[in-house]
């Protein structure tokens, strides 16, 4: 190997002249903005959340793919809106940064989907027609019966399904849709009578008199 080639392999900083040593040893104090700690958060959590929110994980193309997929998984219907209308893509973006173990399965899964769509339809997933997208999704939406060349896609789609459902039903829109009516001060006095009747159940005599 020639000396010139050898030098090419060494990063310039290794010679010490690209970075001023005094500066490197004592970095300038960072521009500290006062951090507001939201109620119920510890300081380290607030610092961490602020840092995560300042990062971006998805490329525009990836985010578009996630958006289209999440709306195929949970579309709008008579009762409520779609996953993207409930903010699911932003939630998934956050979870990628919050739990980085998700990153490779997600990023790689989107690549798998685009590769497979290119083979089948000549285009990446989001550029396919709606019919082609659904045809593709049909191949990976049922993991137990996925064909051998579709199993990685089925695993990716299950991950998308789970993240989408979690994000949708934990949103304001989703909680209204699912019909959860708690999280508010109230007086619990047992299962409503008509529900007890529906299931053929009844409270015991002593339960009816407890606390009276």
């Amino acid at each position: 190997m020639k000396r010139r080639d050898l030098l090419k392999g060494i990063p310039v900083t290794a010679f010490g002249f690209a970075v001023n040593p005094t500066e490197a040893a004592v970095p300038a104090p960072p521009d500290v903005k006062p951090l507001k700690i939201p109620g119920g958060r510890q300081k380290f959590e607030a610092v961490r959340d602020a840092a995560l929110n300042a990062e971006k994980f998805f490329t525009p193309h990836e985010l578009q793919t996630v958006t289209v997929l999440s709306d195929i998984i949970i579309p709008a219907d008579a009762k409520s809106g779609s996953a993207s209308q409930a903010g699911v893509p932003a939630f998934i973006e956050f979870m990628m940064k919050d739990q980085p173990r998700n990153q490779t399965p997600m990023r790689g899964g989107i690549r798998w989907l685009d590769n497979t769509c290119t083979k089948r339809y000549g285009k990446p997933f989001v550029q396919c027609t709606k019919t082609q997208q659904i045809d593709m999704v049909e191949q990976i939406a049922y993991p137990a019966i996925a064909k051998p060349d579709m199993t990685q896609g089925a695993t990716f789609f299950s991950m998308m399904r789970n993240l989408t459902a979690s994000g949708f039903f934990s949103s304001q829109m989703g909680i209204k849709d699912i019909g959860y009516v708690g999280n508010t001060p109230n007086q619990w006095d047992g299962v409503p009578d008509e529900v007890l009747k529906q299931y053929g159940l009844a409270y015991e005599e002593r339960e009816l008199n407890m606390g009276k």
Binding site: A165, S166, F169, S170, I175, Y180
Partner: peptide, 8 residues
């Protein structure tokens, strides 16, 4: 109350 993990 639904939260992370719902429907998983």
């Amino acid at each position: 109350m639904p939260a992370y993990g719902f429907g998983w």
